[in-house]
């Protein structure tokens, strides 16, 4: 069991695209079943941060401890297999594959064929099983992406801009879904939709120009979204 229930601990993380440094000495930690948000303006380095944690980008220095183990330098598929899943912001599923096949892919990789948990959160996917990814709406794709990710019982879900391009009613549903999902996994959301973030997150990190400038724990401040002053 990790110390203090901390499932993910990032220390002094630095990353660069070529010569251009993008994130500077990032420190963050997430506890089991916690819902954490990272907020910041476009280009603040939020996505880069998630990608470094997931192993998709090579960080120049720092440490990422997941479930008591150093995962820095591990291949993204190894990180995913360990139970740290990344959900991209582009809402792209495998377009040529049906919903069923998309889920099967995830099941095969994780050995978890229990889709009831997926349907419990997203009952609509059960109806859409034979529909190809190309014919799904943005909301349905988001459901499928999260559904795929929760197979294999991940301990941490990294979700990049989950509400981007979604209708308000679907965003409302996602609030409930993320609350439910956090019973099994810690969730880190990157987002600019502050009203959504305020309804989901228990703790917020504000990022500006690649630097972590504030950690907001105050419930009132989160609820009222007054942390926007940091952005």
């Amino acid at each position: 069991m990790p110390k203090n229930n901390t499932i993910l601990e990032v220390t002094n993380l630095n990353a660069a695209y070529g010569q251009s440094k993008v994130i500077f000495d990032i420190n963050l930690n997430v506890k089991l079943n916690e819902r954490v948000a990272i907020v910041g303006r476009n280009g603040a380095g939020k996505t880069t941060m998630l990608k470094c944690i997931a192993g998709l980008l090579k960080a120049s220095s720092g440490s990422v401890i997941y479930d008591g183990m150093e995962i820095m330098g591990k291949a993204p598929f190894e990180v995913a297999k360990m139970g740290l899943k990344y959900i991209d912001q582009d809402k792209e599923v495998f377009l040529d594959l049906t919903v069923r096949e998309n889920l099967q892919l995830s099941s095969y990789a994780t050995g978890d064929y229990n889709w009831d948990r997926v349907f419990e959160h997203f009952p609509k996917l059960k109806i859409l099983l034979d529909r190809k990814g190309a014919y799904l709406s943005g909301g349905e794709r988001q459901m499928l992406m999260i559904g795929r990710a929760i197979l294999g019982d991940p301990k941490v879900l990294l979700i990049d801009e989950p509400t981007e391009g979604l209708a308000p009613s679907i965003v409302n549903d996602l609030v409930t879904t993320f609350h439910d999902l956090s019973k099994d996994s810690a969730i880190i959301i990157v987002g600019q939709n502050l009203s959504f973030v305020s309804r989901v997150a228990q703790r917020i990190y504000a990022v500006k120009e690649g630097r972590m400038i504030a950690e907001i724990r105050d419930k009132e401040e989160i609820k009222e979204a007054t942390y926007s002053r940091y952005l």
């Binding site: 997931a54 998709l56 291949a75 993204p76 598929f77 995913a80 297999k81 899943k85 990344y86 959900i87 991209d88 792209e92 599923v93 495998f94 377009l95 040529d96 594959l97 096949e101 099967q104 892919l105 995830s106 095969y108 990789a109 994780t110 795929r148 990710a149 294999g152």
Partner: peptide, 24 residues
């Protein structure tokens, strides 16, 4: 086969396949 499906996914978006835990 799952292998065939993963091949198609490599063509579409190999990064996504990595997120799912596959060694591309």
């Amino acid at each position: 086969s799952v292998f065939g499906a993963t091949c198609l996914c490599v063509k579409c978006n190999e990064e996504k396949l990595r997120f799912l835990g596959y060694n591309v």
